[in-house]
């Protein structure tokens, strides 16, 4: 019983110390909030910021689409070239890719089973 009381007193003492620290933090942050001046630019500034960001997003989208199109065209062209000009290489490549995918899936599956 005495032990429990002592523990409770200790706990209350700890809580009080934490409360004091929290109060000091709050006071400090409140001082920052009130003292550091923040200049808010006019509406025009924010409109320009939005317009610039939208332009940047548009440019990024065009760039990504262009890269995607060029890469897709390159892949399709090389596959078609191989199929019509060197069919043996095309079929060897098909086989190699299939074997690679199967081996990779098997290894991943075995690792997953071992892990669990």
């Amino acid at each position: 019983m005495v032990n429990r009381k002592a523990l409770q007193l200790e706990q209350d003492h700890q809580d009080e110390k934490l409360f004091t620290a929290v109060k000091e933090i709050e006071d400090g942050l409140e001082t920052l909030e009130e003292t550091i001046p923040v200049y808010t630019p006019d509406l025009q500034f924010f409109e320009n910021l939005v317009a610039e960001q939208k332009q940047a997003m548009k440019r990024k989208l065009i760039k990504e689409l262009a890269i995607f199109t060029v890469a897709a065209l390159l892949i399709v062209t090389s596959v078609l070239f191989m199929l019509y000009q060197v069919p043996s290489v095309f079929f060897i490549l098909q086989g190699a890719v299939t074997i690679f995918i199967m081996a990779y899936s098997t290894v991943s599956f075995v690792k997953q089973v071992d892990g669990t």
């Binding site: 920052l32 909030e33 550091i36 923040v38 808010t40 630019p41 509406l43 924010f46 409109e47 317009a51």
Partner: peptide
């Protein structure tokens, strides 16, 4: 764009003051 600008203008002081508190650098 105007709606965006108004939203930003209204929330700008709140945002900057929050960032001052976490960065400690205005």
């Amino acid at each position: 764009q105007l709606a965006f600008a108004m939203l930003f203008k209204n929330n700008y002081p709140f945002l900057v003051k929050y960032l001052i508190k976490i960065t400690m650098n205005p």
